[in-house]
Design a protein around this nucleic acid. Structure first.
Length: 594
RNA sequence: GGCGCAUUAGCUCAACUGAAUAGAGCAUCUGACUACGGAUCAGAAGGUUACAGGUUUGAAUCCUGUAUGCGUCACCA
């Protein structure tokens, strides 16, 4: 049991005995005492002042006295205004540390047969463009969230819905046929997703040129758009695709194959993956069927022109189109079809969609519609909504070429990590392979940490210069601390130092602070339901790292009595393990030396 | 315009359920390497938490209004 719980239960009991007030232990949340006061944990007595009909100081003193007399973990207290500062027996902390060190799976909960099954959808790319910085935030959040959920004892299924059909991919296909002269990723030495992205850009270029020409002939914007031959051809291709024209389908499959190979490479480098991938081309028909089913049940309605709608006005929302008058499906329809397939494939208890906040309304609507259509988790689906990534110059705009490509960015981060390591002389005596491995881990660690440390709900600014920083609240700073601890522990082993019993040692303030910080960890993980949990973990592990560094500079870990060394080694080992675990939840790797 | 989200130090971000003097990093300035790893640490300076009210013993946090920014309101995805 954590010290927090020990204290809150004891205080609850004290309040009951002293004032006959029922205060649930859960409602009493001790906080770490501020540095300027004596004590380790602080409980506020304000809530009981009225019922006890005494001054806050008196209440604090009475509870404090009761605790010292009745709770063995409490050795003293002091009261400042309405704040009861509790001093925990120094030796108690050793027990806490021993508990952490002994429990290999500390900080996580086991996944059992009875664990709820949570499905997490993230990434969700289109197949006409390579991944960019915005996708990185999505993918890292989704991947980290999955790991956290699993550590909290959930069965997790990671999923991806690929938007592989629609006019956008037809544009790329058309451009490839017309202007790319049979180029393949191999022949052009370009990643497949980039090649298809180039096609898409090329289409846009030609389309714009055509529009310009038409307008110079005196057409208005609308007239030019209607008269455009390339756009007409793209639409024709889409119709052929819908009719399953073999030639179009074959080209579609070929180009999508290139894109998937490219995406896989990017995912792999990021260290993320999926348990099950869905494709819209295979789910949209199910969506239609499900909508028609809802129509029969009477939860949806059909308009005179044949289009199908959901009336959500009683939920405070609008009406929403689900099938066009020509019977084709829209975005929402596809999501319904995908939901159906997922429901058929897995016994889902909870569904989490990691999707940008520009779609907040869409998911509000989707939740209601899924609920009406009888999905048991529909009402409670979680839209893990996150804000945009902006650049110091403002928003990313593909038209202005300010989009930051995911592959380029990763490569750049790794290059910079290598450069800096070389400058600092960190690479001396290491093989090329070792250097590359470290640069990869550190460069990507910097990138991932930078994107995950921010509260997902907020828009964030991505500053390339700062992200490559290696000091302060950054991934590399934490990775460095880990590597140094490992180094110290290696030294200890070489010196023949053994972990001996340290139960008689009284830890100093610095050491207690570190133990307390370590003890906070399970609480952090348990909060995974909160929408910004990866950020919570990132900031926690940074705080832990700072705390450790202060401890590290305070003492000589390996030079004291065997008992004291043992305590310090245990602290170091527990810190290293916690850092590794926490970074693992963020999808960030560690290296033994860097 | 309706709805939703945001606004905290020069900059990038914290602050768990309302709690003590709102915390870090970067940048600036001052110190510390005969030490187990200096990619480090210690210190200084930097704030009317956008503004105005309200609730409360207590508000960055809850409520109302205002301003600014972003998103959304497609038979696009």
């Amino acid at each position: 049991m954590s010290i927090d719980k020990v204290i809150s239960q004891a205080v609850s009991k004290a309040v009951k005995e002293l004032y006959d007030i029922d205060a649930a232990p859960g409602s009493i949340v001790p906080q770490a005492t501020r540095k300027e006061f004596e004590g380790n944990l602080t409980v506020m007595v304000f809530p009981w002042v009225k019922a006890a009909r005494k001054a806050p100081e008196a209440v604090g003193n009475e509870i404090g006295t009761w605790l010292v007399a009745n709770e063995p973990a409490v050795s003293g207290y002091n009261v400042v205004k309405g704040f009861l500062n509790i001093v925990v027996t120094p030796t108690y902390w050793n027990g806490v540390l021993a508990g952490i060190v002994a429990d290999e799976s500390w900080g996580t909960r086991p996944v059992t047969e009875e664990s709820p099954l949570v499905m997490v959808e993230y990434s969700s790319p289109n197949t006409n463009k390579p991944l960019h910085l915005g996708h990185l935030r999505n993918i890292l959040l989704g991947s980290s969230l999955s790991k956290i959920l699993e550590a909290c004892g959930n069965k997790v299924v990671k999923t991806n819905i690929v938007n592989d059909r629609g006019i956008h991919i037809c544009k790329s296909m058309l451009a490839w046929q017309r202007w790319f002269d049979g180029a393949t990723p191999e022949s052009a030495s370009v990643k497949g997703d980039h090649l298809v992205g180039d096609c898409y850009v090329s289409f846009d270029k030609h389309y714009k040129a055509e529009l310009k020409e038409l307008k110079e002939q005196g057409m208005t914007d609308e007239e030019a758009e209607a008269a455009s031959t390339v756009m007409a051809e793209a639409r024709a291709m889409l119709r052929k695709w819908e009719d399953a024209d073999p030639e179009v389908r074959s080209l579609w499959e070929k180009m999508n194959g290139w894109v998937y190979a490219g995406f896989d490479e990017t995912y792999k480098r990021m260290g993320v993956g999926f348990d099950k991938i869905y494709y819209e081309s295979q789910t949209y028909l199910d969506g239609k069927a499900k909508v028609l089913e809802g129509l029969e049940k009477g939860v949806l309605y059909r308009r005179e022109d044949g289009s199908v709608w959901a009336d959500l006005r009683e939920n405070g929302l609008d009406e929403k189109l689900l099938l066009r008058s020509d019977g084709t499906s829209v975005y929402m329809t596809q999501d319904i079809g995908t939901a159906k397939q997922r429901f058929d494939d897995y016994p889902i208890d909870k569904m989490i969609y990691v999707v940008g906040n520009e779609q907040n309304y869409h998911f509000q609507v989707l939740a209601i519609i899924l609920d009406r259509l009888g999905f048991k988790w529909g009402k409670d689906l979680v839209h893990f909504s996150y804000g945009m990534v902006e650049l110091p110059e403002g928003k990313m705009k593909s038209r202005e070429g300010t989009v930051v490509d995911a592959d380029d960015l990763m490569a750049e981060m790794v290059d910079t990590a290598k450069e800096v390591a070389t400058q600092l002389g960190k690479t001396d005596g290491l093989s090329e392979a070792e250097i590359d491995n470290i640069a990869e881990t550190v460069g990507l660690g910097a990138l991932k940490y930078f994107l995950l440390k921010v509260d997902p709900r907020k828009n964030m600014t991505f500053n390339p210069k700062e992200s490559i920083d290696f000091n302060g609240n950054t991934g590399p700073f934490i990775q460095y601390t880990y590597a140094r601890i490992r180094s110290v522990l290696r030294k200890a082993t070489e010196a023949g130092l053994e972990a001996v019993d340290y139960s008689g040692v009284v830890p100093n303030d610095r050491e207690i602070a570190l133990i307390q910080r370590l003890g906070d960890f399970p609480g952090v993980v348990a909060e995974a339901g909160r929408s910004y949990s990866p950020a919570l973990i990132a900031n926690y592990v940074y705080d832990l790292t700072k705390e450790y560094n202060q401890f590290y500079h305070d003492c000589s870990i390996l030079k004291d009595t065997p008992e004291v060394c043992s305590l310090r080694m245990s602290l170091s080992a527990a810190t290293a393990r916690t850092i590794r675990t926490a970074l693992g939840l963020l999808g960030i790797n560690v290296v033994e030396r860097m």
